[in-house]
Design a binder for these strands. Structure first.
Lengths: 192, 192
DNA sequence: TTCAAGGTAGACCGGTCATCATATTTTGTC
DNA sequence: GACAAAATATGATGACCGGTCTACCTTGAA
């Protein structure tokens, strides 16, 4: 990785963390620069679209990272229910070790910016679709017909995202565990 | 209603609408005052805690309104599944008539402010609990044991909230319908 | 080593932000 | 009508905002 690419990655990582903890509009570029130890001049070099461009990169990075994690647990567990539960276990760990400051930057950007930035709306949509895809595929392999599998996968992603928000309100990972219990009977194939 | 109380109510209603559409930090007090046609001096009179106090009033008002709506549909429908579906139908209508600018101000405040304001965190928690309560009660009446009913009710609320965020990203009410389909088998009593 | 491209440093800009303070007006009760 | 409480009007404050600009430095390939 070149020095510039490292600078860029640090900006994205710090922005993601701050967006998760406190939202998009409340996170100023000065804070991102200070906490990442990166220079202002580089911000506009790497992200010519400015703050929105940075947000797009954050959404894309998080989408890829979480999609990879879901694909990995789907490949490593016998049922969709087990995969989702593994993902939830990981998310719960994040919530607990960060005192609820960890969440989902895609949800932050969708809520705060999507109405006024069609590109960011599309980016957040792609992120959610990307997360539903491995679950839907697995559900089809479990015997669900394709439309129902896709719908159930999206429902599961919605439940996860809602649970993350509620963990913020409750101050603990309880809601994620509620969602794990809620989804289990739906994601377990009938032969189990 | 006195003139002052009307001013206060207009502030809360406008703030709620703007928080839903664009988030908390991106909504400045000037915009709230301009769009509600209310005076700046009155803001600090009615809300001595300032913007946070206004947010607390928004959360409280929305919690009460949606709890009342849930209680009404629970009382008017034969099963929990029907009640949740009626609520989802209403929410979908809001999403569609506002081009996705309607959402949930409690989720906005939880995401953006709860980490730095313990009072607002507690207020958002109470709101979610208030929404889960009528569902849990109904699920108990359907035969679910109390701990499972409470957990499933919270899971359902999480799914609803996540669906609202995803509607923002998708630009339509599709995710709410996915969640309705996802929850139906879980909320339908075994004798149906 | 050279040099072009990539990347950085840092000052500056006009604008917005939430809050505060105090004088004034309005409201509501007796 | 009197009067106290409620509500409003309005200007001011210091902090912060994202973006721009230009000179300069660093990197990486030939």
């Amino acid at each position: 990785m070149s020095k510039g690419a490292e600078t860029r990655a640090r900006m994205i990582e710090t922005a993601s963390r701050l967006f998760q903890a406190q939202g998009y509009a409340a996170t100023g570029l000065n804070q991102i620069l200070t906490e990442s130890g990166t220079p202002r001049g580089s911000m506009y070099f790497h992200f010519p679209q400015g703050k929105a461009g940075l947000a797009a990169a954050v959404v894309e990075a998080h989408a890829a990272e979480f999609a990879a994690a879901l694909e990995a647990v789907v490949a490593a567990t016998p049922t969709t229910a087990d995969a989702v539960e593994a993902a939830i276990g990981w998310l719960a760990g994040q919530i607990e070790t960060t005192a609820c400051r960890a969440g989902c930057p895609v949800t932050v950007v969708a809520l705060e910016v999507a109405n006024d930035d069609p590109d960011l709306r599309a980016a957040t949509r792609r992120a959610y679709e990307r997360w539903a895809a491995p679950l839907a595929e697995r559900l089809r392999a479990d015997g669900h017909p394709a439309p129902a599998a896709a719908s159930l996968a999206r429902g599961a992603v919605a439940a996860l995202e809602g649970a993350l928000v509620m963990c913020r309100a409750f101050g603990d990972a309880g809601p994620l565990r509620d969602v794990a219990a809620t989804l289990r009977p739906l994601l377990t194939p009938p032969d189990r």
